[in-house]
């Protein structure tokens, strides 16, 4: 314990002893951590958007106003047995009106006028699919059922856009973000490792006399190595602090943009409710990068 404390103190002191080298190492660490955080955020964002869109684009069957309850029930049961369908939910005319009312300001105005003319909104069955690709085939199957006679229209019939194309686009974007993020993060990770590696190598070189003396007076391997590992970890701690300090105002701006322009409440919510965890992850990552590159430098250049 005494030894650990002495090693820690010495590592801490050494970090400040060559301030210029430490500055470069800290700066690159901060940039790397920021980039990695940014891409982690982007990947999470795109993927959560993808999930949301996939859920939105399931199949809706609009029911004729003349349909009887038993007919609707029969259709619901039949659709549920169709392979590829996970759930079928009934939305009555009244539910549809309420939804419209709650959807937005304009929606509530529309709902008001709709109710005045006797609620023209149709009742519907909302079908969730296991795999979105099957939407065309499933639509066709359902339309072929005898119970399907009460269906006036489906969301698939009325869609003029190519839903599959939209989803494929999102998947493409998601993959691209993941790939670019991964490559950039890896590149900066390597740069950070190299710079810290060199910083520690320089530190080993400038302190070679001290190291020799430590060995002569009987310092154990870890007493000599420890301070360098601590030093590397310090770059991680300082870099993470800078990254976090930059992230707080930055995330506010990004949050605003996402909420206003992209309606991405879920992602933003996830990030703000897990801020502590994210900070800890950034610090953890910084310390790991620092300690690892220090360790590499020691095992290459510190012959004990």
């Amino acid at each position: 314990m005494i030894t650990f404390w002495r090693v820690f103190k010495s590592g801490f002191r050494n970090t400040f002893r060559h301030a210029w080298l430490s500055t470069a190492a800290t700066a690159i660490m901060a940039v790397t951590l920021l980039i990695m955080t940014f891409f982690a955020f982007s990947i999470y964002f795109v993927q959560s958007q993808l999930k949301e869109v996939q859920q939105k684009i399931d199949l809706t069957l609009f029911i004729s106003d003349d349909a009887k309850d038993e007919e609707i029930k029969a259709l619901q049961a039949k659709v549920l047995t169709t392979s590829g369908v996970t759930t079928v939910e009934f939305v009555s005319k009244l539910d549809a009106l309420k939804r419209l009312e709650n959807s937005s300001k304009e929606g509530s105005k529309l709902a008001k006028s709709a109710s005045e003319i006797g609620n023209p909104l149709p009742a519907s069955l909302e079908v969730k699919l296991a795999v979105i690709d099957d939407i065309g085939a499933i639509n066709k199957t359902i339309r072929g059922y005898p119970e399907g006679a009460i269906i006036t229209e489906t969301s698939y019939d009325s869609s003029d856009d190519n839903r599959k194309g939209v989803i494929e686009n999102i998947i493409r974007i998601s993959n691209a973000v993941t790939r670019v993020g991964g490559v950039l993060s890896a590149v900066f990770l390597i740069i950070a490792l190299l710079i810290i590696f060199n910083t520690v190598r320089m530190a080993i070189y400038t302190r070679r006399e001290e190291i020799e003396i430590m060995k002569l007076v009987g310092a154990t391997k870890w007493f000599v190595r420890g301070p360098f590992i601590i030093e590397g970890s310090m770059y991680g701690v300082f870099g993470a602090t800078i990254a976090v300090m930059a992230l707080v105002p930055l995330s506010r701006v990004i949050n605003q943009f996402l909420v206003e322009k992209l309606n991405a409440g879920a992602t933003v919510g996830y990030f703000s409710s897990n801020f502590m965890l994210i900070f800890l992850a950034i610090y953890g990552l910084g310390i790991i990068i620092g300690a690892l590159s220090s360790w590499l430098a020691i095992s290459r250049h510190l012959k004990l």
């Binding site: 060995k215 002569l216 009987g218 154990t220 391997k221 007493f223």
Partner: peptide
């Protein structure tokens, strides 16, 4: 190898160039 530091602690060494920090 791990015991070399302990060995060195039992032997005091003094050099021409002092080797002080």
């Amino acid at each position: 190898k791990a015991n070399i530091p302990h060995l060195r602690r039992k032997i005091g060494v003094v050099f021409q160039d002092f080797k002080l920090l």
